[in-house]
Design a protein around this nucleic acid. Sequence first.
DNA 1: ACCTGAACACCGTTCAAGT
DNA 2: ACCTGAACACCGTTCAAGT
Lengths: 216, 216
Amino acid sequence: MARPRKPLLSADRIVAAALVLVDEEGLDAVSTRRLAAELGVSGPSLYNHFRTKDQILEAVADAVSAQVDLSMFEDGRDWRRALHDWAVSYREALTAHPHLVPVLARGPGRRPAGLRLADAVFGAMVAAGWPPAQATSIGALMRYFVLGSALGSFAGGFVDDVSAYDPADYPHLGQAHLLAERQEQIDARAFETGLSALLDGLALQHARSTGAGTPS
Amino acid sequence: MARPRKPLLSADRIVAAALVLVDEEGLDAVSTRRLAAELGVSGPSLYNHFRTKDQILEAVADAVSAQVDLSMFEDGRDWRRALHDWAVSYREALTAHPHLVPVLARGPGRRPAGLRLADAVFGAMVAAGWPPAQATSIGALMRYFVLGSALGSFAGGFVDDVSAYDPADYPHLGQAHLLAERQEQIDARAFETGLSALLDGLALQHARSTGAGTPS
DNA sequence: ACCTGAACACCGTTCAAGT
DNA sequence: ACCTGAACACCGTTCAAGT
């Protein structure tokens, strides 16, 4: 075929197809040949639009990061509520594409949407009166919690098989095989419990450091 | 050579060599051929001891999980202090082998050490008076936080390059390129801040649910 | 039982060739 | 500029053959 008069591919089309493939069949299914086939071209064609396969995945990760809502840092919401709403939006974006979390976990690097996200949180915390060093910590620790919660479900990590949990070995895991079933609910509840605890704890600290305010 | 009178390989030797390889060159460096070469045998030999490459990595992950200290749940320590010390030990075990975190993140599955870990936390929280559903949440959310903090350093995720952070795009990231340098310190501080906040918040909740006690 | 080399169906990436 | 097929150096895994 050689060069068509109208390009068959574009960075956006490649990213979109890669996201579908990741969601449907996991990270391992994304090979350059497979992805190209999905787009109706041959493997090496992708290299006209991205320098490496890794850069394709980075672009996919950035597209997902871009879906995280940041508007709560702009209106007048107090820092605690803003942080809560942001964490919820962040987690939703990631759990919609669980196979991609290991890629996102590599850090914002040079991904624009990832950086915008880090920038918004940091700026909002400083504006709320947190010292810069604390604002950095908050950005980091919220990221830890959200990524951790999206990466590998806790409940889904257990096997749906009674015999896997011999009571002699694990005296307290008698109900563990049930976790797999109610996976989503258990992960969602643990996330909310942890997020509330985190924000309660930060509010205590904020009250102490500004010497005023009533926490919780 | 064929079968030697004394086996050249053992599961333990393979796991140990794989851990060294992961630590020194990352997950991608662990191929069956490369790992076998490191052990002085040919690639397919490994399949006499493990059914798949993935099971080798699971075994490596379990070996690392086994290094997490669980003794704090046995002596008389109060739940809050036990949880703190456990989280610190957990994080230390993981940050010693950062490349392995994505494997650990798949969940305890059938890995004995991973299950022992989940069992110990759950049991200790129930013993401390938490209702079972809450104890499950605590096990999950602590795991989120520790895994998230070990998986991809926050500070290390930024690029050590001023030009990456155009102030027009990211008004608050003027110092971001400095994060890469002081990576470990920043991650360690964010972890401690987050862990304290988490425990403060949980203590508040514990006090509320048992209707007594003075938190923090 | 435990190792070997050969083989299969894959990879990511480069590159000269085509329009 | 943007696609192609061929090629290179890899993969994970299977299997018959050797002792």
